[in-house]
Design a protein around this nucleic acid. Sequence first.
DNA 1: AATCAAATTTGTACTAAGTACAATTTTAAT
DNA 2: ATTAAAATTGTACTTAGTACAAATTTGATT
Lengths: 141, 141
Amino acid sequence: MKTPIVERLQAHGIKPSVQRIAIMEYLMGNYTHPTADTIFNNLYPLMPTLSKTTVYNTLKLLAQQGAISEISIDEKNLRYDADISSHAHFRCKHCGSLFDLPVKRLPSVATEKIDGFVITDTQLYYKGYCKKCKTKAPALC
Amino acid sequence: MKTPIVERLQAHGIKPSVQRIAIMEYLMGNYTHPTADTIFNNLYPLMPTLSKTTVYNTLKLLAQQGAISEISIDEKNLRYDADISSHAHFRCKHCGSLFDLPVKRLPSVATEKIDGFVITDTQLYYKGYCKKCKTKAPALC
DNA sequence: AATCAAATTTGTACTAAGTACAATTTTAAT
DNA sequence: ATTAAAATTGTACTTAGTACAAATTTGATT
């Protein structure tokens, strides 16, 4: 019997190695939009032979195959999300925290403008100040 | 009499130094979503005392003040855009080229979910394959 | 089971985008 | 002219991510 993790990998054409399973499992258990580094640091104690390169390579592979999504809202690091359903992200410019936001559906582009293009990913990012940090926002004059 | 560049800077509370004007002018004359490095390389011959740090600092300042927008669709570099009107970006995963896409208006979030948050920026990114590179796209099986 | 090629992982060295910071220069008010 | 504040500069540094060759694992075939 296959775990949901293995199923997810295979559904996206990815051979389920021990490392890939561990990384996918981590993401499916932690919807915290972690960085590659965070993932490595959390898995390393459980898997002392794990290499950082493998984490980077695997995340790139998973994202390429559409098994996870790569979030570039944080200018410094890429973040990863196993939730591949339609949703947006909000990032607080003061404290850096990242929130999921529901959207009915991500907007599509006027067909005539994008005719002949193939769209594989849509990302909707909001930036600003969260409830806690709102007082830190520069005056909007 | 003030140039449109100086006006734009002042409208966003930025004191118009020679360097800031040069950078803002470059962006308003080149809607090519350049990186900091590209801007530096283009301005340096005309302004041999210009420092890369100034370019980075100025772009950050301009973006903070909302005079330009910072685009993080390219995972490797930040890109900058003097067009601050409502539009989306498309990036080809094969050739890397970046296109502007018109949108009627950027989607807003369900108020109850974002209540108490202050949104200052909205970014809508599409990724995929452009007309030229479409044949290079992996089978969507 | 032994062999062997292909795929995957590992570790080290490297690249390059961006930042910290102190020193210098410029600005502009008195 | 003097002087304090603001802006710029250059160097050194940090760090996310990649290149690549060596080692390991996988899995098919005899």
